[in-house]
């Protein structure tokens, strides 16, 4: 490859570095496979987080909005207990680091399982659910109570009012915060290496440990995160604009 010989020295060094870290022994596989696992864990954790967050947020707001009007009875006891569980969940999850939660899941709760992806999905999903719950709750609380009363006065029950009137408006308001939570989540999965899950960051780190060359693999990993986040942000901006459009 004669043209390579005519390269300036620094470019030659860069090329050698690149070849060593990604081409030799097909090391690029660590990056691609890692990226796949990062996306897989993030995707399912997001779904789990939204589902959990929605349930927790609805329990919390239902409790806060109605408890003073409810007469003593089984319904009141149930909602009080659910609210207590929800609060406990929020306190524990938001009060401890996600790495610790991940390690507790892997080494204690699911010690008998070796399905690292599933454990990571559960740990990150349960973690994200707590933050999503508070985001959704703030969204519901941000809707004027008059909207709720208008829905109820037409004859909609509590759940119908929530789904048809409150949630669509709340969702619009919380979209930026929700997007931010997912951006945080995708980057948070980078600590999965603590339980030996070979996601993107761990993949880059394995290359570094084999080649003793830190620059290429770590910068590559950083760039990939950056590109994903930029792409996702762009997507959210478009969605936001679409949702706002019909209001003016």
């Amino acid at each position: 490859m004669t043209f390579l010989l005519s390269m300036p020295a620094w470019l030659q060094k860069l090329y050698d570095d690149f070849k060593l870290n990604f081409i030799d022994k097909d090391r690029y596989n660590y990056i691609f496979k890692g990226l796949g696992i990062t996306l897989e864990v993030t995707f399912f954790a997001v779904l789990l987080g939204i589902a959990l967050g929605m349930v927790i947020a609805i329990i919390r707001t239902t409790h806060d909005k109605n408890i003073s009007d409810m007469s003593m009875g089984p319904a009141k006891v149930i909602i009080k207990i659910l609210n207590l569980i929800a609060k406990l969940y929020l306190t524990v999850i938001r009060g401890t680091p996600v790495v610790v939660q991940l390690m507790i899941s892997y080494f204690i709760i699911f010690a008998s399982s070796n399905n690292k992806v599933m454990i990571a999905v559960l740990a990150f999903g349960i973690n994200s659910g707590a933050y999503v719950a508070e985001i959704i709750r703030s969204g519901i609380m941000s809707i004027d109570n008059g909207q709720f009363e208008a829905g109820r006065s037409l004859g909609f029950n509590y759940v119908q009012t929530m789904i048809l009137i409150i949630m669509p408006q709340a969702f619009k308001n919380i979209l930026p915060a929700l997007a931010n939570e997912f951006i945080v989540l995708i980057k948070e999965t980078s600590v999965s290496g603590y339980v030996g899950l070979q996601e993107l960051t761990k993949g880059g780190d394995i290359i570094r440990s084999q080649t003793y060359s830190a620059f290429m693999p770590l910068i590559a990993v950083a760039l990939i995160y950056l590109v994903i986040v930029i792409f996702f942000s762009k997507l959210i901006t478009l969605l936001e604009r679409r949702l706002r459009n019909n209001e003016r």
């Binding site: 004027d144 008059g146 909207q147 208008a150 006065s153 009137i165 408006q169 019909n246």
Partner: peptide
């Protein structure tokens, strides 16, 4: 009918 109309803005 409410003082603040309470139409559904969405």
């Amino acid at each position: 009918v409410f003082q603040h109309f309470n139409l559904f803005p969405h």
